[in-house]
């Protein structure tokens, strides 16, 4: 029998290396951050509905913007935005009552999902209603709500209801309500969320590659000066050098995130830097739930014990300290 060629051996080595990398990629992952994501994404969806309680018909109703009344008068059959066309099933809804029922279902289901009660069914209902409402009028929000759909989907696909949830409490599963650093689950939903987060930074990074506003250090000044977003009206002139530094830091932090978040040790620090960036923006600007959405997803890049420390569940160390001696 002839000896295998050097080329075949090399190919075999690469195949083995790739297989090991894939095994690592799909290995079970810590779930403390995913439980935070479940809560955050559910709460954001709930806030999307409840925050517009007084405007339900104006935003999504038959006589609201882009509503059935408008389409009938115009004699056309167009979605509010082509990208959401496939899900814009409410465009021709003539019933205000149906809209109220769906709105209530969306609000309740997203709240249940957040606390992990009937987690998967509640999540599915929340996502379905949210997708319908978002497609019906994507302009109801300043753009931050686009990513909630896929992020919510990943949190539903992950069995996040197993831990830190009402479902776990109803099951009497004490282990699922303590020591969050030890919570583990399938890796692939975590990877979906992480890669999508990186895709988001990739899109943002590319869009800034040829933007003079970013390279000249004016983007942050523009962001904090625009009172549509800014929390308060401040004269930022004296802060221009600091804002220019912040602009370049943000350009580097977000632009390099798709690569550096994956580098061992550096990734956690990079995630912390990005969390700082989002927290800083949240302090001075209103971007709906954008910072919460991104911040929660970034937690998946932090070591589980760091995230666990902030969760209101008893940790292993705390449990040991409280355990009777002897």
């Amino acid at each position: 029998m002839p000896a295998p060629s050097a080329g075949a051996a090399c190919t075999g080595a690469w195949a083995a290396r790739l297989a090991r990398a894939l095994d690592r990629f799909f290995a079970p992952q810590p779930y403390a951050a995913m439980v935070v994501c479940r809560f955050a994404f559910g709460a954001i969806a709930c806030g999307y509905f409840l925050g517009r309680a007084g405007l339900v018909q104006e935003i999504w109703g038959p006589e609201g913007l882009f509503g059935a009344g408008f389409l009938a008068r115009a004699g056309v059959d167009l979605p509010a935005r082509a990208r959401e066309a496939g899900l814009d099933l409410l465009a021709h809804n003539p019933s205000e009552a149906l809209l109220w029922a769906l709105w209530a279902a969306g609000a309740v289901a997203s709240a249940l999902f957040a606390v992990g009660a009937f987690t998967r069914p509640a999540g599915v209902v929340a996502l379905a209603v949210y997708a319908l409402f978002h497609a019906r009028n994507p302009y109801a929000t300043a753009g931050w709500s686009v990513l909630l759909k896929p992020f919510l989907l990943y949190a539903i696909l992950a069995p996040t209801g197993r831990f830190g949830s009402v479902d776990a409490w109803r099951r009497g599963d004490a282990a699922a309500l303590s020591d969050p650093a030890e919570w583990r689950g399938p890796g692939w939903p975590v990877r979906l969320l992480q890669v999508h987060l990186c895709a988001m930074y990739l899109v943002a990074g590319w869009s800034r590659a040829d933007s003079p506003s970013w390279w000249q250090g004016e983007a942050t000044f523009a962001a904090v000066s625009d009172l549509f977003y800014a929390r308060f009206d401040l004269d930022w002139q004296a802060w221009k050098p600091a804002l220019a530094l912040a602009t370049w830091a943000a350009l580097a932090a977000e632009g390099l995130a798709p690569l550096l978040l994956w580098v061992p040790r550096v990734g956690a620090l990079w995630a912390l830097a990005l969390l700082g960036l989002h927290a800083g923006l949240e302090l001075v600007d209103n971007h709906g739930s954008w910072q919460l959405l991104m911040g929660a997803a970034l937690l998946t890049f932090l070591p589980a014990r760091w995230v666990a420390r902030w969760l209101p569940f008893r940790g292993a160390r705390g449990a040991a300290a409280r355990a009777p001696r002897g």
Binding site: M200, V203, A204, S207, R208, Q216, E218
Partner: peptide
Amino acid sequence: LGALSISPGLPIFSGSVTAVHRRAT
């Protein structure tokens, strides 16, 4: 992805305006 109404990301704050910035609308 468009058929599933999934967007990979947003070109957030990608404006190219310099020198004069919007304060309010």
